[in-house]
Design a protein around this nucleic acid. Structure first.
Lengths: 171, 171
DNA sequence: ATAATCATGTAATCAGTTACATGATTTT
DNA sequence: AAAATCATGTAACTGATTACATGATTAT
């Protein structure tokens, strides 16, 4: 009985990026994270290059020399093991159902520590930032991803509305 | 012109916990994180004790000897600087408005990589997990926090419904 | 008496951040 | 000609994880 290959979320997301656009480069994978609307992963070289090297060592990623001139390039693709591990990560419903990290939720539960005026000013500012973010044209990507992103932003606005009503009504 | 004191989210949340229940102990703060419904912070001793020590060094937290018998205890409270820093962190609307990390969103955008049957089975399992989590009595805490948590879970269910409809309709 | 909980911390390890460094190619 | 982008990586640092370690107090 072999152990399942456990991947962190960044590892899983990296394998998915490689699967999506192989042959691709570590640079391109890093750019995808840096350009994503989530500020959660920086997509820095210091994170992505070592991570891909580790996954090559584990036999999940294959790098072949793809230089066409003088410039070095390693063309990445998934091995069969890597593809399987990626699918296990992607379809992990239990992890997917977890509530993750939300910087607003983390703060909202503690707004009773400030004055009503401070709280209301905070909520106004958050609403404004959320509205701006929803308007901003992120991701020059597929209509499919745009549609999913739209559900995220719309749900976020709806949640904010409910939260706002609840918090303002607190004495 | 003095620099604003920048806090990580774990640092901010720790200061808030101390403010909420001072005098309190590092152990109690760690327990709060461990018991919270978010799996994001483990609340391990290895994270919390060094963090509080750092904040004592920075003059944000004060620890006074609170031993009443043989057992060591450090009673924690915020300094004036710590209280101010906590408020700046708590009322940081820009950071609060960020979308954070959501393990479902991270996966949802890539479900076109699997078969329709795999995708549908995944969505069924996620729905079940979300429903279970919403039913579970977490947080033996105030009605106020319960109410906020309820808005989180309800919004999550609504978002899932929209996402589910969108993804299943994809060919 | 034993087990659980309170309370403190450290050690080894892993993973991510910013910043730096190099050089090729492409765009303006 | 200069600036931007492609592409590779490393170094120093910070912070979080698991696991370990100790001992006091409280509950069963």
């Amino acid at each position: 009985m072999k152990d399942a290959i456990e991947l962190t979320d960044l590892e899983g997301a990296t394998l998915v990026q490689i699967a999506r656009s192989s042959p691709t480069t570590a640079y391109a994978v890093a750019r995808t994270f840096a350009d994503s609307p989530s500020e959660f992963w920086s997509g820095s070289a210091g994170a992505v290059y070592p991570l891909i090297k580790r996954m090559q060592t584990r036999g999940l990623v294959l790098g072949t020399d793809g230089a066409d001139g003088k410039r070095a390039r390693s063309d990445l693709s998934l091995t069969a093991t890597g593809d399987a591990a990626m699918r296990v990560w992607l379809l992990d419903a239990k992890r997917a159902a977890g509530i993750g990290f939300d910087p607003l939720r983390t703060r909202a539960v503690h707004l009773d520590l400030v004055t009503a005026a401070e709280r209301d000013a905070f909520l106004d500012a958050v609403r404004e930032h959320i509205a701006t973010a929803a308007r901003a044209p992120v991701w020059p990507d597929s209509p499919r991803m745009q549609a999913i992103h739209a559900t995220v932003m719309s749900a976020r606005k709806a949640w904010f509305k409910a939260l706002d009503a609840l918090l303002r009504s607190s004495q």
